[in-house]
Design a protein around this nucleic acid. Structure first.
Lengths: 189, 189
DNA sequence: TGTGTAACTAGAATGATGTTCTAGTTACTT
DNA sequence: AAGTAACTAGAACATCATTCTAGTTACACA
């Protein structure tokens, strides 16, 4: 079995707290070192650098959102609405992690430290593009270039969550429904 | 007339080139120093730091987009469509500057160097909120909280431009029309 | 039980960066 | 001609991510 060493776990926990509190850039290795109790050497033993720590946390956070993944056998409308609503509901329930994801997603193309994240992100992009292509060929959605369709569907949710504050579940449901409906209206055939 | 080389302008020009080429974060003061021919001291004489240079360039770039500002006497539909289409057309004509604006806009809330930019951005946000409130009270648009309406209208364009490549004017017009139409459909009463 | 090897840890050294400091030099006013 | 404010230069400084060197532990195997 793959047991995660305590040190590695402690480093990740400390880094998550620091990243949520001060953001990725403003967090120094020294802060992570002090909060985790690990030494510089230990940190660089487990991770190739600050970017690799962020990447590990990114994958961990995205797992929380993945629970809302749409059922591939559902209708195009249901899949798209579920994707968008799931993103909004998860984001409003975990605004800190949501903002961290957004920060890292935007930083990745520009920051060489986050090169590993770029590959991970573009693979996710490929999956979404394939799913949209399927809906297109069954005539459920408009025949748009994927970058445009993607922006139409998820752009509003990303943009909103960037500045959103925590919301109680019922309010989050209402807000999610607005974005889900708008997404579907924007791309439906 | 003594045509003294304008140090301030040279610094801004050099910084713009560096920021467009490597991004804000990856640009060092040393690079700006070398490209502009100014010394470190000169740079810090004219600007309080790297963030202040970015802020000056940000205001300069936004002036280019402001040429597309909608006519306040037009209908709500025309104003909203003009705003979104203008953003997309300008962004596709100047992808470098557009990406720089986006980068700085996303970095501002997280980077203490860019504190000055935060005030500037939130003042712009206030103006947009007031304009939307006016359309709301005349019953032209849905009664949505402004952060949601803003995300619905401009989120897709922001999201698209972040990854877009230069496009010829006719293609840009077509793409802009898609986003403008979607924005209006998302918020119209 | 001893021994060798790999995993792990520590913290000092390194190199790069943004910023500040000190000491000038230039331009303009009176 | 003198004074002063604007400007310039580049060394000094503090902080950061990262690398390096020298250990210490855990554990397989004799």
């Amino acid at each position: 079995m793959n047991e995660i060493p305590d040190r590695r776990r402690a480093i990740l926990d400390a880094a998550l707290i620091c990243f949520l509190e001060h953001g990725y850039r403003a967090t120094s290795i020294a802060q992570i070192r002090e909060k985790s109790g690990a030494s510089t050497g230990s940190i660089y033993h487990f991770f190739s650098g600050k970017g690799a720590i962020a990447e590990a946390l990114f994958r961990q956070a995205i797992a929380g959102w993945a629970a809302f993944a749409p059922d591939p056998s559902a209708s195009a409308e249901a899949q798209i609405k579920a994707s968008v609503a799931g993103l909004v509901i998860w984001g409003l329930a975990h605004p800190d992690q949501s903002r961290l994801l957004d920060e890292l997603r935007n930083l990745a193309p520009l920051d060489d430290e986050l090169e590993g994240l770029r590959a991970f992100l573009s693979s996710g992009q490929d999956g979404a593009a394939a799913a949209y292509a399927g809906m297109q060929s069954s005539g459920d959605v408009q025949n748009l270039p994927f970058p445009i369709a993607h922006a139409l569907m998820l752009g509003p949710a990303y943009s909103y969550l960037r500045r959103a504050t925590p919301a109680p579940p019922d309010a989050a449901q209402r807000i999610a429904a607005i974005f889900a409906e708008a997404a579907w209206q924007s791309v439906k055939a």
